[in-house]
Amino acid sequence: MLNASNLTCIREERILFDALDLDFQPGDIWQIAGANGTGKTSLLRILAGLMEPENGEVCYQQTAIQKCAEEYHQDLLYLGHSPGVKSELTVLENLKFNLQLCSQDTEQCEKLLEQVDLFGFADTLAAHLSAGQHRRIALARLWLTQAKIWILDEPFTAIDKLGVKRLEQRILEHADQGGIVILTTHQDLSLPKSRYQTLTLERIFS
């Protein structure tokens, strides 16, 4: 469904990866691993279409993602390093905006907040919350979204153990329904080994 061919990424005159071919099928969970600075985030950003690769292209359903941006963005959920939470807005307002932007109904917001353990914080300004809670606001969308492809950059950062467990559960559920999850993490996934694949990026010395 989503595939990348011959990807090369050069950042500040350093080759991060070269001639990378990837193929993501419905039901796949991919963990992108590798030491710091090996280009995990760059790879995710290229797959999401935020960054242009030096070479190669990413195709969604056989069409280059730049050519079908609207359809691709409709089916894509990307969560980057920064959670994209406005500290001037309340938790509920943040969540509602995120949902509205992807044209989803906002009636079940309260229930979503329960899922990510933010029940009772709905009307608190995000500025008063912790980093982990910010990330939870961003993650709350996962329980409602209809996007098929999830690209998650370090989704477990600053999340407590119970939260991680729930999130993994949700990821598994999504893959079982025919979705694709691509994520980076430094922790080991506690999913069954047969359920996910790992791509390890090596540092290239030139």
Partner: peptide, 18 residues
């Protein structure tokens, strides 16, 4: 600036609307 720093600019760019 703020949208860029807190990551919401990326979210906006990746939303389905042009």
């Amino acid at each position: 600036k703020n949208d860029y720093q807190d990551g919401s600019l990326e979210q906006l760019l990746l939303s389905p609307c042009p």
